[in-house]
Amino acid sequence: MFNVIMRHYDWNDPTASIEVGRVFEYTDPNLAAQFTEGGLPALDRLRAFPCLFIPEGIGNEICRVGTVTAARIANGEVRFEYALDPDVPPMTNSFLFAQKARLDMDRHRHDWDWSRNHWALKDVDLYRVLYRSVNPRRQRPSVFAIPEHEAIEPQLVSVMMPFDAAFAPVYATIQEASAACGLLPRRADEIWEAPGIIQDVVSLLDRARIVVCDLTGRNPNVFYEAGIAHTLGREVIIIAQNRQDVPFDLQHLRYIPYLNNNEGRAALSQALQGRMRTILGH
């Protein structure tokens, strides 16, 4: 079962209200009777079901799925608080209107139940309808595997940089900065968990709390890895010895410039520590 609460919403305000007399409009009478106690809606029981928060209309109005987290009756109104389900993207009324029969929202010939504030209860599995109606999931990568659920290691810093002896002092600087923040840096050449190196790289990126990418030298591997890290939604710190090494598509992002000498690496360490602490909320 699921609730439908049709009214205007300000998605930045998690509170709303509706007249008590409009609860169970466009609801099967037998179903309404099961959730009525003392002549009033049994709000605590209704809150157990997901809710479709939808404004009036059958056009491009935005509607959301979530739950009613609290509700009480006062001065002839049901005043409620709600939370949106982050795993269900916003939808339009027109999309849902096309599914109205499956949602049991087609009880009247003139679609009055799409043009009036009300709270209805439907004996339908909302998530099943949406699952069967939305576009199929994005195709998953075939070159490497990504687990279904994230398993971020809170102290892990993944470092993506050229495997070159000239960068050894730079990696030592990143290790120093990470340690100062209570973090553990790792490079892909330090692990061997999968038959192919790309899988180790992706796994390292996927588990990381922070990713440091050194774009110095315009290394194509590092560019590829930076793209994967951004796609995975990781916090990426870009460093480079030369601004010209930062590609056009990334120049709108802040990066840490540095010189590969003692003074430059000392400044890099301080800058990295500052950024890492900001990301960690310290």
Rank of each mutant, 00 (worst) to 15 (best):
A240L: 07
R207T: 14
P169T: 03
D245R: 08
I237A: 00
V212E: 03
P195I: 07
Q241R: 10
V236A: 02
T216M: 07
V211I: 13
V201P: 01
F223A: 12
Q244I: 02
E190D: 14
T231V: 09
E235H: 14
E190V: 12
R209C: 08
H230C: 10
P220S: 00
T173K: 01
I198S: 11
R218T: 11
A240F: 05
T216H: 02
I237Y: 02
V236M: 04
I238A: 03
G227W: 06
A194S: 15
V222K: 02
I174D: 03
N221A: 14
S203W: 13
D189Y: 13
R243V: 08
D214P: 08
E190F: 09
G182P: 11
Q241F: 06
Q244P: 00
L215R: 01
L205P: 05
L205N: 09
I198G: 09
V212I: 15
P169N: 10
Q199P: 05
D245K: 07
P185C: 12
I239C: 13
L204H: 15
P195D: 15
Q175W: 02
T173Q: 07
P195T: 12
I237H: 02
R209K: 07
V202F: 03
A172D: 12
Y224A: 13
A194K: 12
G182W: 06
P185W: 05
C181K: 06
Q175Y: 00
Q241W: 01
T173L: 01
G217A: 13
V211T: 13
I238W: 07
E193N: 15
N242T: 11
L205Y: 09
Q199V: 06
T231G: 11
S203C: 09
L204W: 14
V222N: 01
G182I: 08
T216W: 00
I228N: 06
D245W: 03
Y224L: 13
C181L: 10
A208M: 04
C181I: 06
D206I: 02
T173E: 05
Q244H: 10
I210V: 15
F223W: 08
I237F: 01
P185S: 09
V236E: 04
G196D: 15
N221Y: 03
R209E: 05
R234K: 15
S178C: 13
E193W: 14
A229E: 04
G233R: 03
A226H: 10
A229W: 02
I237W: 01
T216Y: 05
I174Y: 05
D245Y: 07
I197F: 14
Y171K: 06
V170R: 02
V222D: 02
V201Q: 11
L183M: 14
L184M: 11
I238D: 02
E235C: 11
N242S: 12
Q175I: 00
A177R: 01
I238M: 10
V202N: 02
L205K: 06
P169F: 07
V212L: 10
G217F: 10
D200C: 08
A229V: 03
R207I: 07
I239D: 02
I237T: 01
I197Q: 13
A208Y: 03
S203T: 15
C181F: 00
W192E: 15
Q241H: 04
V201E: 11
P220G: 01
T216V: 08
D189P: 06
R218A: 14
N219M: 00
D189L: 13
A172E: 12
A177D: 06
N219H: 02
L204A: 12
Q199N: 12
N242V: 12
